[in-house]
Amino acid sequence: MISFNLSNRLIFIFSLIGLGVASFLFYEYSLSGPIFCPTGAGCDIVRASAYTKILGISIPLLGMAYYLTMAVLSVVHSHQLPHKLVRKLQTISASAAVGFGMYLTYLEAYVIEAYCFWCVLSFIISVAILITLVLSRDKRKDENRD
């Protein structure tokens, strides 16, 4: 369990890292050359697949929007901790992101059969954000019980 203050800062840091990763992927997806991928050619294979867009929107762009939203919510949240509506928005966004990330990871594992290092990293960051949120929520419940 972690305090709201610390969890908010952690979420802010994770969101900035995620924003960096998603921005890098967005830039690379707009080019045709090979993607810098520490785990081999997986990133190129994933980019060449039919699963880089959803409803015509580039998936890295969705990632950028998500992490930017989470970072903005953290800034807003830092003004008044804990804020019920902001917490709710953060939890809904983080859960949706993890759910969507699970779907994308499933596609990588069983449909595309290749892993993009940056996509997996982004998924791990989104999971870290959700865990941080859940842990801080538990702490609040404990405080209420006391």
Binding site: F12, L16, F26, S74
Partner: peptide
């Protein structure tokens, strides 16, 4: 809030400007 806001704006400017 001011510090986090400033960091966020700076990061966004660097990233989006860079792209």
């Amino acid at each position: 809030t001011k510090i986090l806001g400033a960091i966020l704006v700076l990061t966004a400017v660097i990233l989006f400007g860079g792209i």
